[in-house]
C-alpha cells in the first residue's frame, strides 16, 4: 500500500490542534485506506488502518493460530499408534507443520500490535476461540485420514481465498500454509483410499470415520450467511472474499466426486446433483449441535483446553529457565560464558 504512514490519531491536547482538525485528519486516513482496499492493494503493518479492521484481523488470525495448535491434539493422539512407519512419519511431519503454521500465524498477528503470549493467554482463559472441528474425538486410525481429506479440505477451501486477503502479512502466511495443507490433504485422501481398498474391517473403519467427520467438516465454514455476524464487514474490507455458504457449497461440490472415487458414501440422504443450479444439494446442518460445540459443550472442548493449559503450565519453568539464561548471558551472546 502506498498510503499515509500511520501518525497519531488521538487528541493530544497540543495547543492549536483542535478536535476538528484531528477528525479531518482521521477522515483523510480513512479515505486513503478505503481507496487502497478498493484498488486491491495490500495493507501493511505500518499503514494506518481503522481500529475495527485491526481488531477484526487480530481476532481472526488469532483464532486461526489457535486452531493450528489445538488441532495438533486430535492427530497427535494417533502418533504413537500409527500402523506403519511410513504413516507414522507422515503424521509426525504433519503435526510438526501445524506447529509451524501456528508460529507463522502468531507472527502475522503480532504485526498488528499484539503478542503471542497475550494471545495464548486469551486462548487458555477461553476469551478467544479455535475451530469447533477440533472438539471432536479421533476414535480410530481412519479418523486421521478423514481429518486430512475433509477437515484439511475444508480448511483449504476457506484459506485459498485468504491468500488474496487485504492484509499483507496474513495473505502471505496463507500462501505458505495452503501449500503445506494441500499436501496434507492429499496424504489424508491417500490414507483413506488405502483403507477403503483394504480389508473389510479397514473399509468399515474408513466409512465410519467419514460418517462422523462429514457434518462437522461442513460446519467449519461457520454459520449460514443470514446468521454470520462478521461476514458483511469482513467482505467489505476484503478480508473475506466469499460468504460462508458459498464456500461450503464449493467444498461439497468438490468432495462428492472424491467420495465416489474413494468408494465411500457420505452420510446425507438428501445429497444429490441439481442440474438447474449446477451444484449438489445437501441436507440441513444441525445448527443446534454447531452452537452447542461453539459454546463449549462438544465432546472434547474441556479436554482440548485443559491439555493445552497443562502443557503451558508444565512448560513454565522451562520458559523461565530460557529467559533467565538469556538474561545472564545477554552481554556475551554466547552460552556458558558468563560476563566477567
Amino acid at each position: 500500500m502506498t498510503a499515509v504512514t500511520a501518525g497519531t490519531t488521538e487528541t493530544t491536547g497540543v495547543p492549536g490542534v483542535s478536535d476538528a482538525a484531528v477528525a479531518a485528519e482521521q477522515a483523510a486516513y480513512e479515505a486513503v485506506f478505503d481507496a487502497a482496499v478498493a484498488a486491491d492493494e495490500r495493507i501493511e503493518p505500518r499503514d494506518w488502518m481503522p481500529e475495527a479492521y485491526r481488531a477484526s484481523l487480530v481476532r481472526q488470525i488469532a483464532q486461526h493460530a489457535h486452531s493450528e495448535i489445538i488441532g495438533m491434539q486430535p492427530e497427535a493422539n494417533w502418533i504413537t499408534r500409527a500402523p506403519s512407519l511410513r504413516r507414522k512419519a507422515i503424521l509426525m511431519a504433519k503435526v510438526q507443520d501445524e506447529a509451524g503454521h501456528g508460529l507463522y500465524l502468531y507472527s502475522a498477528a503480532e504485526t498488528l500490535g499484539t503478542s503471542r503470549d497475550e494471545l495464548l493467554d486469551k486462548l487458555h482463559s477461553g476469551r478467544q476461540k479455535y475451530s469447533s472441528i477440533f472438539n471432536y474425538p479421533t476414535l480410530t486410525w481412519a479418523d486421521v485420514g478423514a481429518i486430512g481429506w475433509l477437515v484439511d479440505g475444508a480448511a483449504i477451501t476457506n484459506q485459498v481465498p485468504l491468500c488474496r486477503c487485504s492484509y499483507g502479512p496474513y495473505a502471505r502466511a496463507m500462501v505458505r500454509v495452503c501449500k503445506e495443507e494441500s499436501f496434507h490433504q492429499r496424504q489424508g485422501y491417500e490414507a483413506l483410499l488405502a483403507l477403503s481398498r483394504g480389508t473389510e474391517a479397514q473399509h468399515a473403519m474408513a466409512q465410519d470415520a467419514v460418517d462422523r467427520w462429514w457434518w462437522p467438516s461442513l460446519m467449519m465454514f461457520g454459520p449460514p450467511d443470514d446468521e454470520s455476524t462478521h461476514t458483511a464487514q469482513a467482505m467489505a474490507w476484503k478480508i473475506k472474499r466469499h460468504s460462508n455458504d458459498e464456500l461450503r457449497q464449493r467444498f461439497v461440490d468438490i468432495a462428492v466426486p472424491q467420495a465416489e472415487a474413494l468408494g465411500l458414501t457420505l452420510p446425507d440422504p438428501d445429497l444429490r446433483w441439481n442440474e438447474e443450479r449446477g451444484h449438489y444439494d445437501f441436507g440441513p446442518i444441525d445448527w443446534a449441535e454447531f452452537w452447542d460445540v461453539l459454546k463449549g459443550n462438544g465432546p472434547c472442548n474441556d479436554q482440548r483446553l485443559s491439555t493445552r493449559r497443562q502443557a503451558h503450565e508444565d512448560g513454565a519453568w522451562v520458559r523461565e529457565a530460557a529467559a533467565a539464561h538469556a538474561e545472564k548471558h545477554k552481554h556475551t551472546g554466547k552460552h556458558g560464558e558468563a560476563q566477567a
Binding site: A99, L103, G315, R319
Partner: peptide, 15 residues
C-alpha cells in the same frame, strides 16, 4: 519423542 507432540513447553520445541 513423538509422545511429546502437543505438549512441548513452547511451540518452537514442538517443531
Amino acid at each position: 519423542l513423538g509422545e511429546w507432540a502437543g505438549s512441548a513447553p513452547v511451540l518452537e520445541e514442538e517443531v
